[in-house]
Design a protein around this nucleic acid. Structure first.
Lengths: 112, 112
DNA sequence: TAAATATACATAAATTTCTTATGCATAAAA
DNA sequence: TTTTATGCATAAGAAATTTATGTATATTTA
């Protein structure tokens, strides 16, 4: 990411969850969505995003569908069945992480 | 860490906050404290902890005091003045991260 | 009492994940 | 017509970690 607001490892979880919500998305679309949802706060760099997408695909969590729109290439990614299961795990891990951090660094925080 | 529950970058924040709460701690004590507070969920590996402590010290955020207890060496770390200020910043960043993840992956979570 | 575990530090090699810097190409806007 | 936006990609380097060791003393267990 362009700034220091995200912890390493969280990018994959973001990608998986966005795909889970939106069915299918292409790389550039993901960067814009993250920027929009975070109010311009978070910038996913291409150097981080594309390798991450390729790796998730190599792991069998995503599958690709190439399309040509306005004479420009797009690679639509969507979750595989295995990817959907893994998304559930990753989100649970994120919740665990947040709860752990809550206990460790701030007993005043909590998750609803 | 020995598990996949922690996002990279969070270790420093954990160390700073624990020292802020407990005044002074030594490395092994930190690993045990994290294990206890997380219910055995989180394991800080020595390979991650000691280099992190050395780096925080080199940055001037921690200072060391060596002690010998039961004929065994202990290195007590505590926050410097600069370390106390930085702890506030790191905790704020962690809050920002959690709020960002909340918006991105689960609109149902919130921080009190 | 010998062996295993706990306490306590440390570092080095490899891996993962990210940033920064490029590169290519087309479309739209200034 | 030059800049910005759209859209992909990779390579070099940095940062934080894992995994694998190494050393040493104290305590527990078989």
């Amino acid at each position: 990411m362009g700034n220091s607001k995200l912890y390493k490892g969280s990018l994959n979880t973001i990608i998986l969850k966005l795909l889970d919500e939106n069915g299918k998305m292409y790389g550039y679309e993901i960067t814009q969505k993250v920027k929009a949802l975070s109010g311009g706060d978070l910038n996913i760099t291409e150097g981080a995003l594309y390798p991450a997408l390729h790796k998730l695909e190599a792991e069998g969590l995503l599958e690709v569908e190439v399309a040509k729109v306005d004479n420009r290439l797009r690679k639509y990614y969507k979750l595989t069945e295995s990817g959907e299961k893994e998304t559930v795990n990753r989100l649970a891990e994120l919740e665990d992480f947040i709860r752990s951090m809550q206990k460790l660094v701030n007993p005043n925080w909590s998750i609803d």
